[in-house]
Amino acid sequence: TETYTFDSEDQAEEFAQRAQKKGYTVEKRKENGKFKVRVE
């Protein structure tokens, strides 16, 4: 499980979609103005 942090929602969304296409489970959340994407 890895967590990635992005400054913009667009970046987080793009990353999450790519990860989902590769078959990963993706969980997105906003925390302290940053966008976190957890991938497993």
Rank of each mutant, 00 (worst) to 15 (best):
K34I: 10
K28T: 14
G23K: 02
E40R: 13
G33V: 02
S8M: 07
A16T: 05
E31T: 05
G23I: 01
A12E: 00
Q11A: 13
V26H: 02
T1R: 10
K28I: 15
G23P: 01
Q20C: 12
K34Q: 10
K36N: 07
Y4V: 04
K30P: 06
F6V: 01
D7N: 07
R29E: 09
T25M: 11
N32T: 03
E40C: 14
K22H: 13
R29V: 15
G33D: 07
F15R: 01
Y4S: 02
G33P: 00
V39N: 01
G33A: 03
A19G: 02
T25L: 12
T25C: 14
R38E: 07
E14S: 09
R29F: 15
V39M: 04
N32R: 05
F35K: 00
F15D: 00
F35D: 00
D7C: 14
A16W: 04
D10Q: 12
V26M: 02
S8P: 00
R29W: 15
R38I: 15
Y4P: 01
V39S: 01
S8C: 10
E2R: 15
F6W: 02
E31L: 05
S8W: 07
Q20G: 06
D10I: 11
Y24D: 03
K30H: 11
S8R: 09
E40L: 15
V37G: 00
N32L: 06
K30C: 12
R29I: 15
F15L: 03
T5F: 11
E2M: 15
E27L: 10
K30L: 12
N32V: 03
K34H: 07
N32H: 08
N32S: 06
F15A: 02
E27P: 01
R29A: 11
R18D: 10
Q20R: 14
R18H: 09
R38V: 14
R38Y: 14
K22A: 14
A19M: 15
T3I: 12
K28W: 11
T3K: 03
R29Y: 15
V37H: 00
T3R: 03
E9T: 03
T5V: 12
F35Y: 12
K34D: 03
E9N: 05
T25N: 11
A19N: 05
F6P: 00
A19I: 09
E13L: 07
F35A: 00
R29K: 11
Q17S: 10
K36S: 10
R18P: 00
G33S: 04
K30W: 14
T25Y: 12
K34G: 04
T1E: 09
R29D: 07
E40G: 12
A12Y: 02
A16N: 02
T25A: 10
G23D: 02
S8V: 06
E2Y: 15
E2K: 15
Y4N: 02
